[in-house]
Design a protein around this nucleic acid. Structure first.
Lengths: 215, 215
DNA sequence: CGTTTCTTTGAATCCGGTCAAGGTCCGTGG
DNA sequence: CCACGGACCTTGACCGGATTCAAAGAAACG
């Protein structure tokens, strides 16, 4: 799971409000770009509300979705100097933007924050490695089942709303929109999922989904 | 390209010999394990001679090769606390092993070294992202052509010796040994490569190989 | 020199991609 | 409120590249 600021509290920092002194709050509309591919990476971002996708476009038109981020998570760390992925709001969302270079000015608290950024970067590497394995060695059914379990875990229990479209899922998993659609239909036919609209579903048979995911 | 210690010299450090005061030199035989999957990550490694592969085994027997490393390169950074991949010597090789925690004791030089480790970690993340894209969106022909160009670039001009077997290449690219073998045979039939033995080859038509790789 | 391991090649199969058509959802404006 | 239009999603049929299974061939090693 991407790095969560909850650890800051655990680390002794009073609470999320204290963080706001480091950055500025911004609101983005659905589809808006938060930062561009190859843009200078001077900021880190904490997602306060909504969902974000990072993606990368190649010269030949193919797209890779790097990851999805949910409320509370930190993003924009995926690079050193420049962002190798762009970040876009999946729906209306609110983001805390923190200038990395400014952290040096904040003494001890800034330093603690800097360490957390490093920890989050290592975490990002780890997550990328897992994703890599999934793309290389898994069937479409495994990929999609795994994706659903991941999103369920990250967004908490109960019914799940997918903030992204089918094409986003396909580009995340290195497959096609048709395969995503077919697999979801099949999972529903097998009574593993129950959709209520295109974006809202419940996992009705978790064990079966885990079996499919072949964790 | 994985992080190379050449930058240390560029950064002002006298030369590679100075580094040796930080670590100890070790020799590994072909196939020997340098560190294990899930082992504590207290050391970083610089490969002095030979070639190394990192790999990860899953409970159901599938294997992902994380990367290959060549002389001069730094490895073992792919994790925070524990190694998510194991590292094995592909042939006889010589490695400089540096204890990360000890670097704090070395004052300014140690700190510079620590910064370099961070830079190398970010580099590792970047390389993993590229690899991820390759696994997700490329055909077997593109993967293998790209792999050959990468290895050619990293090991310098002239004839190239593959330090790894076909199965390693397959597990690195998320394909099968048969597909690797077939593709290499086809590339040779098309006069793009010329093999002299199983492991030694020259690129006889680089432009064609780049076209295949679809860079 | 024999054995073992690795590699190549062939043939059959199948998963997933592609192409095509139809359906659903949703916002907009009449 | 309803009709329209466009974006998004689903489904079907077909095709092809890659995997799988099988067997022969080449290289490495003691």
């Amino acid at each position: 799971m991407p790095f969560d600021f909850a650890e800051i509290a655990a680390d002794g920092l009073s609470d999320a409000d204290a963080l706001h002194s480091f950055g500025v709050r911004m609101v983005f509309a659905a589809g808006e770009e938060i930062y561009a591919q190859d843009e200078n990476a001077e900021f880190v971002y904490r997602l306060l509300r909504g969902a974000v996708r990072t993606s990368r476009l190649t010269y030949d038109g193919r797209r890779q979705v790097g990851d999805f981020y949910y409320a509370g998570e930190l993003f924009g760390l995926e690079a050193g100097e420049a962002h190798s992925y762009a970040a876009e709001a999946l729906g209306a969302c609110e983001v805390l933007v923190v200038k990395k270079s400014a952290l040096r000015l904040y003494g001890e608290e800034g330093e603690r924050f800097t360490r957390l950024i490093w920890a989050a970067t290592v975490n990002e590497l780890r997550r990328t490695q897992k994703h890599l394995f999934m793309l290389g060695h898994r069937t479409a059914g495994e990929k999609i089942s795994h994706f659903l379990l991941d999103i369920a875990e990250r967004t908490g229990g109960g019914p799940i709303t997918l903030p992204m479209g089918r094409q986003d899922i396909a580009d995340y998993l290195g497959t096609t929109i048709e395969t995503v659609s077919r697999t979801l239909s099949q999972l529903q036919a097998d009574q593993v999922l129950k959709f209520d609209g295109l974006r809202l579903f419940r996992i009705t048979h978790r064990a079966a989904l885990e079996r499919q995911a072949n964790i």
